[in-house]
Design a protein around this nucleic acid. Structure first.
Lengths: 219, 219
DNA sequence: TCCTTTTTGTTGAAAATTCAACAGACTTTC
DNA sequence: GAAAGTCTGTTGAATTTTCAACAAAAAGGA
């Protein structure tokens, strides 16, 4: 396990846990590392969700089969991202998604029951782990909530302005960078990319904002 | 506290916890019950999020002040709903919303730190409480995820069909009821109500589905 | 540096949504 | 049981978005 320490320490799930405690804990949790070739299925739709996954190297896709049989890629993750934690914690009977290796990848799998039900050893770091997992879920909830707040606006302009003011508020400044390129921003806002570009252009002309690449200024 | 037992037992946060254990635990957690008159602020935007709230009676609104000063109501909760748990667990510095009493209400407030950091007594039910809280957050994450999956479709028709097939899958039947009236469904799908009604009409004519009130049949 | 690839902005036409207004069906209240 | 209020479906016009196609700009590679 030692060789994965460097990447595991970057994972928010293991924040505030010392190296040796982490190693001991992983053993205690029965964490296992598996290697998957490209296109191999790591977790399969329909199976019970018990495992939490952590990408150690390579990348994975979260894939869903549509009601009319179309496969769609919900997201793509790389190290040290965590996946399936919500499904595992909610104890869903059947995973609604599959997780597929996007390239040869090393994946750590931990049975969520081992996390949630602390062992008799009662290691103090287990507490911290639960705390970290909780924080991860809570943060996701908040981010989703924010996104819905943005996308529930009805026009591209409103969505954009709502999003940008949130970012300005967060940065505590009129000038700030966003973590998206145009296509990604359009996907986030759930609008058409070209329409988004057009709207940004309009707002510039009107003097409402200015932008160059990812940097925006809101007047 | 005893008089609140009946309502608290309905709250998923306290699932699988026996009455007397629950009462002892509430004391241990420093849970307090406060009464708020209509329009009084229970939790104020901008303050640190440390408390988890539970509606015991009455109802509350989750309110947000827009970037241009407009107040908007994000949701309305009644007993035995839980609020602010995500903010508290994520330890956000400033609440992005306010919680206002919508009528005279009794609210239980619990400092989230007391939940997350188990006491030295190490009561077994505290474990269960953490577990329940985790499940609550995980479930919310999943529900938000689903909603985004639905609303990310671009047309009313696609949104509606995506949502309905999810419900059919969940009910494991072509015929099922949804928990929304038309306006609520439109809000959930983020579309115009009248447009939604029109689309349902079209789909009926095309023989894709049938509906009366909340009951839908998908062919 | 040059060439290739990706990203971004622009456009106009087609399609879809929103908006406002109204009428009928259904509920609730007194 | 009548009246008031709410919910739903329908319509047409105005607005907005999407879509496809292209050109300019930026980024990356050889």
């Amino acid at each position: 396990m030692k060789k994965y320490l460097k990447i595991l320490k970057k994972c928010p799930l293991f924040a505030e846990i010392e190296d040796d405690s982490l190693l001991r804990m992983l053993t205690c949790l029965g964490a296992k590392v598996e290697e998957f070739d490209k296109k191999y299925t790591i977790l399969a739709e329909g199976y019970p969700a018990t495992y939490i996954g952590i990408v150690l190297s390579g990348s994975v896709q979260i894939v869903q089969v549509d009601y009319d049989g179309n496969r769609s890629i919900l997201s793509e993750l790389s190290a040290p991202d965590v996946f399936a934690e919500a499904f595992a914690c909610a104890e869903v009977r059947a995973l609604p998604v599959s997780v597929i290796a996007n390239e040869p990848s090393q994946i750590m799998l931990i049975d969520c029951n081992h996390i949630l039900h602390t062992c008799e050893n009662n290691c103090g770091f287990h507490q911290q782990l639960i705390f970290n997992l909780m924080k991860d879920l809570a943060t996701k909830t908040i981010l989703f909530h924010q996104r819905i707040e943005v996308t529930s606006k009805r026009t591209t302009r409103e969505k954009l302005l709502t999003y940008l003011s949130m970012q300005a508020k967060k940065a505590n400044s009129h000038s700030f960078e966003i973590p998206f390129d145009r296509q990604e921003l359009a996907d986030y806002l759930e609008v058409d990319r070209s329409g988004l570009s057009a709207e940004i252009g309009k707002l510039k002309k009107e003097g409402v904002l200015d932008s160059q690449k990812n940097r925006f200024v809101l007047y």
